Amino acid sequence: MPPKIRRATLATVAASAGVSVTTVSKVVNGRADVGPETRALVESLLEQHDYIGRRSPAGHGGPATARIELMFSGSLNAYSTEIIQGVLEAGGEAGVAVAITTRPRPAPSRPRGWARDLAAAGRRAVIAVVDELTSADLAGLTRAQLPLVVIDPLNLQRNEVTSVGSTNFAGGMAAAQHLLALGHRRIGYVGGSTRSACNQARMHGYRAALEAAGVAVPDEYQRTGDFRYRDGLDGGAALLDLPVPPTAVFAGSDETAAGVIEAARARGLRVPDDLSVVGFDDTEVARLASPPLTTVRQPLREMGGVALRTALRLAAGEKLDSHHVELATELIIRGSTSGPRCGG
């Protein structure tokens, strides 16, 4: 673990600026009775020293109410809704509030001092469901002494970053084994980014099951994307337009699976008569799909709850037995899978 970094004090900043502690305090608290040049100097030094004040957020009297920051990349969807519900339920049980923020894709660089500002606003820890955390992000959180927990990590640059995920490899294997047991031999995969650790695990599980059964996996049967509906629509179209298309598709998320089902419908194919489809997550999308989607249940609400409780433990200075926790996945069989018409 990185060494604990001592926070700068008002006195530290005052000594660097050559002003009184009172003057620095006025700047920190937004008082107007400080000259513009002195204010600019003090604010610059506060930035350099990564000073974390104790004031409430601007415009709110009294102590900050939100204690845990939950960060997402991109727009919210069924997957993120399940995680949010789990975090909020665990937060309610623990008596803490949760602030939710999102940033667009591709994600812009975070401003310098963003972590310090979170700590100054009263956050105790950060839970992240993001595309990528940079070295600068991690360093900023360390300087601000804000513990970080990542859910379903996509790309982590440090082994010691605490994360919560699921048994993605086992889930991918279970999906492929289910399709093999039904008699399918031409099984495609439409998943997420090649940089995504969870996508790689799901795809490797799928490949392991097929290879163990002696089934070849053509390169053209594997498509990557971003776990979104459009990726399923495009990836499914590409697979179904092949000279020898698959008779079944394992999709890396329920949303992607819904896109694959639509790609099949647009080509006059019926699910599961002409094409079997398996998803991943078991979100509301799976239950509302037509037909209801066979999928690998990823315990998203439980993952959110574990992340919240882990973040609070870290904020309290507790040591963890492991930096990564994986919750079990489970295959849920519904109406989108059946045996192939012509032997797979």
Rank of each mutant, 00 (worst) to 15 (best):
G192P: 11
R230L: 11
P292H: 13
S336N: 04
I84N: 02
L45F: 14
R110W: 07
V161W: 06
P272L: 14
S166I: 01
I68T: 04
H60S: 13
R124H: 14
V244P: 02
H60N: 09
L327Q: 09
V28M: 12
F250R: 06
V21G: 06
G214K: 04
L76K: 05
G165M: 05
L179N: 07
G205C: 10
E255K: 09
D152C: 11
A176I: 02
V19N: 08
A144T: 10
E93K: 10
L293M: 02
L210H: 01
A125W: 04
A136T: 15
H184P: 04
T23A: 15
V126F: 06
A17H: 04
R207A: 11
L331F: 06
I151F: 10
P245A: 14
V150E: 13
P272E: 05
A248W: 10
G225R: 00
L138N: 08
A209C: 09
S73H: 09
G192M: 07
V278L: 11
E220H: 15
G305N: 07
S135W: 08
T224W: 14
G30C: 03
V96S: 09
S193W: 00
V215R: 00
A176E: 12
V161K: 07
A208I: 12
G74N: 01
A176M: 10
M303N: 05
G172Q: 00
P245Q: 12
G236S: 07
L269G: 01
R297L: 09
S196W: 02
T256P: 00
V285M: 03
N155T: 11
P2T: 14
F72V: 10
A119F: 03
G188N: 07
T102F: 00
A286C: 03
L210C: 09
D281F: 01
R228L: 12
T194P: 15
L210W: 01
I5L: 15
L239E: 03
A125Q: 01
A136R: 15
V306N: 11
R341M: 08
I127T: 07
R55A: 12
D321E: 15
V13G: 08
T134V: 13
Y189I: 03
R334M: 06
G30W: 00
H184D: 07
M203K: 14
R67T: 13
G344M: 06
L156Y: 02
R313I: 08
L118Y: 02
L269A: 03
L233K: 00
R31M: 08
A316H: 13
V190Q: 02
M1T: 11
N168P: 02
L293G: 03
N159A: 15
R123C: 13
N199M: 09
A238N: 00
P3M: 12
M173T: 11
E262D: 11
G317V: 06
L141E: 00
A32E: 14
R39N: 10
V19G: 05
E47I: 05
S135M: 10
G59D: 09
A181D: 15
R123W: 06
V278H: 04
L133N: 03
L154S: 14
V28T: 11
A237W: 02
G18Y: 06
I332V: 15
P111N: 10
A58M: 03
Y79V: 05
E69F: 12
G252S: 14
G268K: 00
A125M: 01
